Amino acid sequence: MVEREESESDLNAIFGALANPTRRALVEQLAGGPESVGDLAEPHDMSLAAVSKHLQVLEDAGLISVEKDGRVRRCHLDAAPLSDAFGWLTRYRVFWEDRFDALEDHLEKDGQ
């Protein structure tokens, strides 16, 4: 039971972090490779402090890791939690595909 609660908690954190468009954009930026916080902040119309708060949410969800290199903080994407979220979504994709197939069969049967 504890494992399921932890897994649900992890998914809540992942989906909560990805619910924000700025954080999704940051994840997309990091998909191209590690970047400094300053480089990540550059394309966004917000303060460095605001971007840092978004990065903290992503880090808390396990989606990124941050390492200090002198005065520079470099962020790295961790794709493993995204894989967990994709796995959860895939289960429901299969569920809905099965439902739509059944509906199609039903409609074809009624149409004959």
Rank of each mutant, 00 (worst) to 15 (best):
M1A: 10
E3R: 07
R4E: 10
E8R: 12
D10L: 12
N12Q: 15
A13Q: 07
I14R: 01
G16K: 06
G16E: 06
A17H: 04
A17M: 06
A19D: 12
A19E: 08
T22Q: 07
T22G: 02
R23M: 08
R24F: 04
R24I: 05
A25W: 03
Q29K: 10
L30C: 04
A31T: 11
P34I: 00
E35C: 05
S36A: 08
S36W: 02
V37F: 01
V37R: 03
G38T: 12
D39M: 10
P43W: 07
P43D: 06
D45Q: 08
M46E: 13
S47L: 08
S47Y: 09
L48R: 15
V51L: 11
V51A: 02
V51C: 05
K53W: 01
D60E: 15
G62L: 01
G62C: 03
G62E: 04
G62I: 02
I64N: 01
S65W: 06
V66W: 04
E67H: 09
E67Q: 12
K68Q: 13
D69R: 15
R74W: 10
H76S: 13
D78P: 00
A79H: 03
A80I: 02
P81E: 01
P81D: 01
L82K: 04
S83M: 11
D84H: 12
F86H: 15
W88F: 15
L89P: 01
R91G: 15
R91Q: 15
V94Q: 14
F95N: 00
A102V: 03
E104A: 14
H106F: 15
L107H: 04
E108F: 04
E108M: 09
G111D: 14
G111K: 13
